[in-house]
Amino acid sequence: MEEQPVFPEVTLEDSKERVYPFSEFAGKYVMLTFIYTACTDVCPELEMNLAQVYNSISEEYVGEDIVFMSISLDPEQDDPDTLEKYRAYFGSDGETWRMARITDEMELNALLDDFGVIVIPDGYGHFQHNSAFYLVDPNGILIEVMDYIEIGTASDNLLSILKEEASDL
Rank of each mutant, 00 (worst) to 15 (best):
D78W: 08
V53Q: 02
R18D: 14
I66S: 01
D147M: 07
K16N: 15
E107S: 04
E84N: 13
A100D: 06
S92G: 15
V42C: 00
D113E: 14
V62I: 13
P138G: 05
P138L: 05
M31C: 05
T103E: 15
F115Y: 15
I120E: 14
T96A: 08
G125K: 12
V6A: 13
K28E: 04
Y61S: 09
D74I: 02
T37M: 07
E150K: 13
C43I: 04
D65H: 10
L83I: 07
L111A: 02
S58F: 03
D81M: 12
A51W: 00
P121G: 11
F115D: 03
L50V: 02
K16P: 00
T37K: 02
E17T: 13
N130S: 08
Q77M: 10
I66D: 01
E60M: 06
L73Y: 06
L162P: 03
A166G: 01
T11A: 07
E9R: 11
I149F: 07
E165G: 08
L83M: 14
T153Q: 12
S131W: 04
Y86P: 01
A132L: 04
E9A: 13
F7V: 10
E164W: 10
D78E: 10
I143C: 11
D81H: 08
Y86I: 00
R101A: 12
I143R: 10
N139H: 13
A26K: 15
L169G: 10
E165R: 14
P8E: 12
S72A: 12
I57P: 00
S92A: 15
A166E: 14
M31D: 01
M1S: 14
W97G: 01
D114H: 09
M106H: 09
K28H: 05
H129C: 11
A110S: 13
V145F: 04
V136S: 04
Q128E: 14
S131V: 06
D156R: 14
I57F: 03
A38M: 12
D41V: 09
L111K: 02
I151S: 08
Y86Q: 11
A88K: 14
T37G: 06
L83D: 01
T82M: 10
N49K: 10
N157P: 00
G63R: 06
A154V: 04
D81V: 09
Y61D: 03
F90V: 04
R87F: 00
P44C: 12
L108N: 01
E95S: 11
Y20K: 12
T96K: 13
G140R: 05
I141Y: 06
D74Y: 03
F68E: 03
D79L: 13
G94T: 06
G116K: 03
D81P: 00
